[in-house]
């Protein structure tokens, strides 16, 4: 054989063998010991690395779960209860069920309702605009409409409605990963329990200005009129800084408050108009009963008063 070819083959083979040996020892020496359950848990996770669980990624979540050995404080919002059940099975621990959540948009100030007061010409980013000033409409609390939330969504679960200029959450795709909530500089997005039969009710306004000012800025702003607050039978609605807020934990989804809002800014999801109407009628009836009762009481009180007047006071 040609000696050149021979030497080439020999030297390459030698280099190969030496390299293989080196790699073998290096891999042994620097092998990372890891609980193999972490890998198993990671496999069932959705591997979106969205950070919705509070951990930097799915691997970190798997590691945290294995280390904690307990699921009470760890939950994968994207995988939901189904995935968490699998995780629990792998680790042989008890699964903890959690209510699914969804992001809701708490602003109804569409183009039509909220007039522009100036033209924003900076970088198309809500965060940058929010740091510069209170916004291009009168309302300092409302959506800036530059889609930071849509951009940050890993699940294509949001889009901007071109007619209103507001973001829309697609119910089936939203995994409640919290990314948009963290991104929004105005705090308009909020995680909300998906609710029984996916029914939800919330007030889509964050304007804390006095009622008259707020309405000047946006025709559907919450003016703090308290009608919904008074209508709620479960103390689920609170009033603060002339702004009503529904506490989803206390809300029984009775829908009786929905029609009290004179600007129709109590937003419902997956609730039929019939149900709202029925709830409203029920409320009106109840209010009527209450009013009658009050009147009767008043009459009774007046009668009692008269009675007391008849007996002269003792000095």
């Amino acid at each position: 054989m040609n000696p050149v070819i021979l030497y080439t083959i020999l030297s390459l083979t030698a280099i190969g063998i030496v390299a293989a040996v080196v790699i073998y020892f290096v891999s042994k020496k620097f092998a990372v010991q890891e609980d193999d359950r972490i890998g198993k848990v990671e496999e069932v996770l959705p591997s979106t690395n969205c950070g919705g669980c509070g951990q930097p990624g799915c691997h970190a979540f798997a590691k945290a779960v294995v280390e904690a050995g307990d699921l009470s404080s760890l939950h994968c919002p994207v995988g939901g209860n189904a995935v968490m059940k699998q995780v629990a099975e792998i680790l042989g621990i008890k699964a903890v069920e959690r209510d699914p959540y969804i992001a809701v948009v708490r602003c109804s100030g569409s183009f039509e309702h909220r007039k522009k007061t100036n033209v924003y010409d900076g970088t198309e980013s809500c965060k940058i605009a929010a740091a510069l000033y209170s916004g291009d409409t009168g309302c300092a609390y409302g959506c800036l409409g530059m889609a930071d939330c849509v951009e940050v969504c890993d699940f294509e679960a949001m889009y901007m409605d071109e007619k209103t200029g507001l973001p829309v959450v697609i119910e089936d795709k939203c995994t409640a990963c919290n990314a948009c909530v963290k991104e929004c500089p105005k705090g308009i997005l909020e995680l909300w329990p998906k609710g029984k039969k996916n029914q939800r009710v919330y007030i889509a306004c964050l304007n804390e200005e006095k009622g008259s000012t707020a309405r000047k800025e946006c025709s559907v702003a919450c003016s703090g009129c308290s009608k919904c607050f008074e209508a709620c039978r479960y103390d689920a609605i609170t009033m603060e800084n002339s702004l009503a807020h529904i506490d989803p934990e206390k809300c029984k989804l009775c829908m009786e408050c929905v029609d009290t809002c004179d600007v129709h800014n109590i937003i419902t999801a997956n609730v039929t108009p019939e149900k709202i109407q029925a709830a409203n009628e029920q409320r009106l009836k109840r209010e009527e009963r209450a009013r009658k009762k009050k009147e009767e009481e008043k009459l009774a009180a007046e009668a009692a008063k008269q009675n007391t007047h008849e007996t002269p006071p003792q000095a």
Binding site: T117, N118, V119, Y120, D121, G122, T123, I128, L132, Y133
Partner: peptide, 8 residues
């Protein structure tokens, strides 16, 4: 028309 607002 409206005034323009942008960062410096």
């Amino acid at each position: 028309g409206l005034l323009t607002v942008s960062p410096s």
